[in-house]
Design a binder for these strands. Sequence first.
DNA 1: CGGCTATATAACCAAGGAGGTATTTTCGAG
DNA 2: CTCGAAAATACCTCCTTGGTTATATAGCCG
Lengths: 105, 105
Amino acid sequence: MPIPFDVLAEPQRRRILDLLLERPRLVGELTAELGLSQPGTSKHLRVLREAGLVRVRQDAQRRWYELRPEPLAELDAWLAHYRHLWSASFDRLERHLDQLKDDAP
Amino acid sequence: MPIPFDVLAEPQRRRILDLLLERPRLVGELTAELGLSQPGTSKHLRVLREAGLVRVRQDAQRRWYELRPEPLAELDAWLAHYRHLWSASFDRLERHLDQLKDDAP
DNA sequence: CGGCTATATAACCAAGGAGGTATTTTCGAG
DNA sequence: CTCGAAAATACCTCCTTGGTTATATAGCCG
């Protein structure tokens, strides 16, 4: 699964992720919060779904959308290549991370 | 400076960042590596410059482009809101980070 | 100065995508 | 079995943008 940069480039989609970070939501709720048309919201949700950033749980006619953070973890991994450029204590941090892994796997 | 999601959404621009991660480069070098036209490369560089992701150092007619990681650090900060979703040891990590700060400021 | 090199800007074009309205599908309630 | 609610899909339009070629700008060197 490639990192969904283009999916995240859309502000409304990031707002959806922010909302889903709090709790799962119905399409109708998201539509209201975003101020979009219902089909517009559904279209964004489809893109997010296909990128693996959200999953759906069906409940009668309702669909609960919830976050799937895996692609964001991949984005995080990509960022790691650059992180030493701004994180002065990056090397020490890495060593501590390794140590954490050993402590509690 | 807002997080430049849309700037990063362009694959060629990410390739430029990857190349600049190794070392600063001239426009001509980047053009060759990307297989784009020279104006095409310049246009991407302008976008990256305006997003604060690169800076230029002039040297006669040459322009050396180099990485500016600050916007990526902001992206990292945005990601932090989501990080606990996949990083099981996130809380412990946070404590260790604070400790590091105290150890060596 | 005149020409050469490196880069930027201008003008244009084609494709993609975000938005809307209209329509379809699905499912529960009565 | 019909009606209504919830969400998805179809279709269209407009705007943005990545790519191109042509041209302008800037600075070195003979």
